[in-house]
Design a protein around this nucleic acid. Sequence first.
DNA 1: ATGCACCCCGTACCATACTACGGTGTCAAC
DNA 2: GTTGACACCGTAGTATGGTACGGGGTGCAT
Lengths: 133, 133
Amino acid sequence: MALTIGQVAAQCGVGVETIRFYEREGLIAQPSRPESGFRKYPPDAVRWVRFIQRAKALGFSLREIKELLSLRVDSAKTCDAVKGRAEAKITDIEKKIGHLQEMKRALVKLTVACRGKRPTSDCPILEALGEGD
Amino acid sequence: MALTIGQVAAQCGVGVETIRFYEREGLIAQPSRPESGFRKYPPDAVRWVRFIQRAKALGFSLREIKELLSLRVDSAKTCDAVKGRAEAKITDIEKKIGHLQEMKRALVKLTVACRGKRPTSDCPILEALGEGD
DNA sequence: ATGCACCCCGTACCATACTACGGTGTCAAC
DNA sequence: GTTGACACCGTAGTATGGTACGGGGTGCAT
């Protein structure tokens, strides 16, 4: 049931070096290393790496992802601090969702304008994006 | 009403060099250049740069942002192609929104677990993230 | 007409996040 | 028991997205 680094990499669609890199950077835990020195990963390792990939695609830096993942580690210890950081991340995520919805609305508007007559604005994408922060 | 590069930069919270960089990379249009050679920007330039910043924070690469912005340029010409690309971007954005909502749900769950007794899983963040693509 | 802030350009440098390389060791199959 | 695929490590190189620097020119305020 344990996986080699190559198997984890293949299942995540990344290179072996990427996994080692994440380990060096402290994004994923050190796996067990029986005699030979070969890393042995639990199946969950695949989910961790996929989570990292996904979070990256959503605009989080590795530093932020590390913070996200670390929310679990000390949860037994400093519950209030963890809760605070989690809530900050939630706010951050809600902002991102809002911005994406604006972008989506703008693009939908664009396709609609496309369907009918020519768009009236010379930039439908920007047009639908307010100045909101 | 026209702005200097420094004014645009200040209003967007970026450096002058960043604007010139975006121009070199074709993300923003060449502004007019009266006699002196100084760039003169229309007020809208601020919105363009802000759009770029926002899109970056949402995980789009400059290449993708360029594509997003270019959807406006040829809209009069190749309407069908534009519509197709816009629809692809919409799908992409919907996926991002979905992933962010999953992350948010996971974090909310974490804060709730925090409030009451200890979390049951040893990783509440991952726990709420399915294997969905 | 002389500052001084701001603009020009090109080039070089930086941080982030990998990716490749080279030399060596391991393991499993034949 | 040897061969081939895969693992180990450290170091170096790459792509992206800026950021800084140096040596100049401009423009307006005093």
